[in-house]
Structure formats: structure tokens, C-alpha cells
Write a protein that binds this DNA or RNA. Sequence first.
DNA 1: GGGCAAAGTGGGACCGCTCCCACATATTTC
DNA 2: GAAATATGTGGGAGCGGTCCCACTTTGCCC
Lengths: 360, 360
Amino acid sequence: MADPTTAGPGDGHREGSPAPGSPHSPRVATLDEVALRAGVSRSVASRAMNNARNVSAPKREAVARAASELGYVPNATARALATNTVGSVVLAVSHDDPALFGDPFFSQVLVGVAAALDRSELDLTLMLTSSERGRARLERLLRSRRSDGVMLMALRKDDPLNRVAAATDLPVVLGGRPLDAEARWYVDVDNRGGARLAAEHLLRSGRRRLATIAGPDDLHASVARLQGFADALAVERLPADWVEHADFTYEGGARAMTRLLAAHPDLDGVFAASDNMASGALRALKAAGRRVPEDVAVVGYDDLEIARHTEPALTTVSQPIRGLGQEMATMLVRLIDGDTPTPIILPTRLVVRGSAPGPT
Amino acid sequence: MADPTTAGPGDGHREGSPAPGSPHSPRVATLDEVALRAGVSRSVASRAMNNARNVSAPKREAVARAASELGYVPNATARALATNTVGSVVLAVSHDDPALFGDPFFSQVLVGVAAALDRSELDLTLMLTSSERGRARLERLLRSRRSDGVMLMALRKDDPLNRVAAATDLPVVLGGRPLDAEARWYVDVDNRGGARLAAEHLLRSGRRRLATIAGPDDLHASVARLQGFADALAVERLPADWVEHADFTYEGGARAMTRLLAAHPDLDGVFAASDNMASGALRALKAAGRRVPEDVAVVGYDDLEIARHTEPALTTVSQPIRGLGQEMATMLVRLIDGDTPTPIILPTRLVVRGSAPGPT
DNA sequence: GGGCAAAGTGGGACCGCTCCCACATATTTC
DNA sequence: GAAATATGTGGGAGCGGTCCCACTTTGCCC
């Protein structure tokens, strides 16, 4: 970004017509040129392009032809300035910890978001805000009206993005509920229900000494999954206090599993709040000489690809990650259009594989 | 995106001052208001904000104060229109096959790109172009001057994005070389050299009956890795014709391995052109009763996290994926600034683990 | 202390679009 | 057939910045 001061003379000014010797670009046509060629006024041309009323058929057609002959594409910036809507939305992700971003989870959300946005005419601006600096940038981005709305992923407690979200007047959609703040519009997965499914499955297959590897406790999803686990045990009047926290990573899961084994050598079932952690747990169990599922049954969460490739394959809770992204984007589009959608909780389902087979 | 025609009366027009009852937004200040408050002309205010020359210290300060009091943030759209530079770049990914996008590879590139862009003032617009429709969108996006430049990932042969890239006059940086077209600016990894490292390692540890699981043959990276593999064998005057192609996925790798075993039961070493495929190969080998590395040594490519968690852990070729993204963004920024950078080939290195230990 | 360059200032055109409004022309309606 | 309405049309004022340019003020030099 060159200092604007140093701009040369005549900078930014155009020659009257497609100058053959211009540095690059065949000079993209403007609406005025289209209008001129079609023999109508700019107003009519504008209306014709936006197929609005009050344009006679012949003129409409003339404009269409002129536009296609000139290869006219409206200047998005000019339109944005005139209409005060930009045509793009932001997806911001706190990227301080690699856990959230490293795994395929995020890619899937992205695919969902992109798919939903594809149906509208909105572009996706991605912001990975690590550090204070990134947060400030996001704040500026929003305040400089470069965006029509924001999606925020998985806010941790005290996440600075919370502040940013509160400070903007743009529509904000959250992916996952924030732990502390009250969110007006969000899309979440039924974490509690999913975890409950997992624990119930373990109980149904006869396991009674259940432990869990929970996620970081400043994340709503972690808390909810732990809660769901406890829900299921409560029904059977079993205590749900064999808990170790980890950071959703493989290594973290392995370490947590080791701690659990040390504290509760007689455990016979484990629910890990992510597939990565479950995979790590599998390794730790193997290292400790436990057989899965004979000695210890393991259930994961996410149903990532890795779950199909562990040994044994992971029984896990499948959640519609792409759907999450899709719903977020759809909700944001609605908000931008002036609707007032309601929060959405997406369902989960259990996928049974070798690490925790069903009863019998 | 409401039809502009149906816009209500008075739409888009502002009240003179912060109307208390306005629907939302405390009405963001404009440069005129800052100038007024600072008691200077708009020109001076503009110059002061862009800290250009020709502003006296006191006025400069007055403007700064007024701006901060008003919470002024320049309207990016207006600035873009006036300067004819938008302040954002596009990263486009052909997303027809999940292979490219599904694995963590892409997330890492993204992180690198974002990190490099963070240093400039450019935003990142992400486009996952699947289908014809997506390609058309990208084309429009570029022609509508909503972006200052483009990064394109890993173009396949005949990828429609090639056409898009050729049609635009914006700076284009490629991640990975295109197979067919001649690229002017790209960042690539030394695929050939990396593959050669892998094969040399296998040879050095005494393997002589080497096979390879190559990627799709319409991707430069695949061809180059296959070439590198052949390079190493050529030195030893060994034929490099035990080749099976797969699609970079786990399942594909497993199937390819099975085919290789059927065709060449006596093979003692395999180079797979991705860690995912190598993992699949590991499974297939295990299923066939071969021990790794005793009977068959396996080397992967990528050094993704999965490589550390297979059994045995994968010897693999590590490439700077984040660096790739970083260099791409940096190169694009240079181009936008008017420099003419040269293509970059990033180095690779071998990471030795259990699946193919070194000699002795 | 008059002359000249440099620094500082504000007016206003412009970027390319949208949209209001006044006016011209076609279509009803009584 | 005149009046009332509907439909079409183009002029022109924004949107909120940047930047050129003419002009005033200062600083410097001999």
C-alpha cells in the first residue's frame, strides 16, 4: 500500500476511451459507456441492469446488448458506496490456539458457510484473529463498513471477540454459544444431547465405571458435553466425577487418559469430547496394556475422518459440521435481509464402531 | 439482498445528525464531520488522517483529536472508490474434490496466508469454487473490481480456474505450478526434490524393490513427486515402474497399496505421495500380513499430524505448508505494490520415524 | 525589505454507481 | 375528448472519500 501522498500526477484518472497503450487492463466499461452505446440515459441503463420497472422493452434490450458487447460488469465498490451495503460478510475465528484451527473441523464449517453464501451474492472475508492486533483489525474492518455482517466461531470465555461483537451494530451470528455472554443469534450443536448419547451407549453396553476426557472448561461446548455425560450417569445414579480436562488434541487426550488410568485403574469406559482426544486415549490405553473395547470401551465426538481409521475404529458422536456452517451463513443472510431468525440447535447422532460396540 | 427496486422512500439517506431513534447504529462519523469539528477543511483532514505532508502540526493534532473523539473510522468503500484500490485479495480454491480441501493441508496454507496478510492492510476473501457457477462468480468478483489480486491453489490440468486467471488483469499468484500452462508468478514446494529424498532414504536403508503410490496425474505436484522418485531410482539404475495412482486419500492409498501388493508381491519399500495415502497403505499392508518396516518400509509425504500417530509412525517428507501460504501472500502484496518478484520453490526435508528407519 | 521557493490551506472535481424527482408520453376512465 | 392515471425517461444530487490546483502564508536569502 503505497503512501497516497506520493501518487504521481494524473493518478487514478482515466483516459476518455480504451487507450491502447495503457499499462494493463482493457479498461473496464462503466455504466455511462453502456448507456451511451445503448442510446439511453444512465438512469435507464441502471434500471435495466437491475431489471427494475419503468424501462421499456426495447431499451431494456438495447442496454443488455450494449452491456454484453462491452463486457460490462458493474463496479462493486461504486455500488456499495451508493447503496450502503457491501455485499460481503466476515467469518472471524479466534486463532490463538491451534486446536480449533488445526483439525478438519474448521474446514468443514468453512465449506458449509461457503455453500450457503454461494446462494446469496455475498462474499466471504476470512479473519483469523490471533493476538490483540488481529482483534483491532477486525474491529476496524467492521467499523469501516467493509462488511454487512459477521460470523464468529466458538468464543471462549473472555474471548476478546466478544467485545468486538458487542461493539458493532452489524448483524452477528455465533457458531456455538458463548459461555458467559447472552447471545441473540447463534447456531449450535446439541452438545449436551450428543454427549448424553455417548454415555448412554456405554451404559447400555454394560459399562459402569465411566470416565470422561473433557475439553477446556472455558468453552461452552466442553461444558455442555460434560453436562450431557453427567446427565446420563445421573439416571443410573452413578457419580460423574472421573473427569480430566484436555485441549481437544491427540497428545492432550493421551495425557488425560494416562491420568485417568492412574486415578481410576478400574475404569471400563471412556467418553472423550473429541475424536482427536479419543485417538490419543486409544494410544494411551494401548500403552497401558488395556484392550479396547474388551477392557475399556471408548467413545469419541465429532466423527472426523480419523475416527474411521483408528485401531479399532472409533464409536463416536456425529455432528453436522457443514450444516453448522451452512446454518450460520443462512441465518446471517436472513438478518441482513431484515428478518429475525431464531437460534438453531443441530442434532447429533451416535455412530457405532469397534471401540465401543453395542450391547450383546 | 433485497431487490433495489423495492427500496422504500428515503432509503439510504441519512439524517443530518445522530438521530436518537434510528433503527440501529450510532451513525458513524464522516470525514466532513471530523473536519468541521477540528475546524479545518476536508482536504486538510484527509491529509492529516493519511499523515501526508503539508499539514501544520497544530491542525494535524486537532484532526487527530476530533477523529478520536468522534470515533472516526474512514469508510473503506469510499476510499476504495476514490483510489481505485480495494484493500482485499482473493484466495480461490477449486473445490470439486474433497481431497484437497478435506485434509489439514489447506488450513495450514490459510494460516500462512492470513499471517502474511496481517502485516499488510489487506483483507482475505475466500472463494471455494466448486462447479461452473462458482467459477463464474469468481470471474465476476474479479471483474467487478472488488479485489486487488488473486491467489489460486493447486490448479489441475484443464482446471477452469486457469481460464479465469488468464482472463483477469489483476495480479495472480499460484500455489503450486500448473501442469499445463506457463505460470509467471507462483510459489511451489520442491516436490521433485522431496520425493527424491524419500526414495533415496529407502535405497540407503537397503531397499531395492521400490513401489510408489502417486497422486492424480493431472496435478503438477503428483507428476513432480513421481519424477523425483524416478530420479533416485535412476541413479541406481533401477526401473521406476511400480506405480499406482490414487487420489491423496486414505482409502485411495489403501486400495493402491493392495493393487501394488498384488502386482509386485516382493516389494520391500513404498513411497506414498501423501501421508493420508501412506496411512491407508499401512492399513493395507497390515491387512496383507506384512510387517512395517521389517518387510516393507513406507515413506509418506506432507508431515501432517497424522504421520506422528500412525502405527508405526510415518517417515515422511516435511514441507513448509504455512510457509507456502505466507510466501504466496507476500508475493501477491509485492505484485500489488508494483514490484516484480520471482517464483519461489520452497525446500523440503525428510523426517525419519518408525515406518522407514534409517540404515543400520 | 523585496523576491522567491516552500509549506500550508481549502475549493471543488471526480471515482461509478443509485435513486429521487420533475417532466414527457402512453393509457385509462368518465 | 378532457382529465386522471400509469408508465417511461433523463437530469442531477448524493454516497464519502482522494487529490489536483489555485491561492495564501510563511521562511529564507542576498
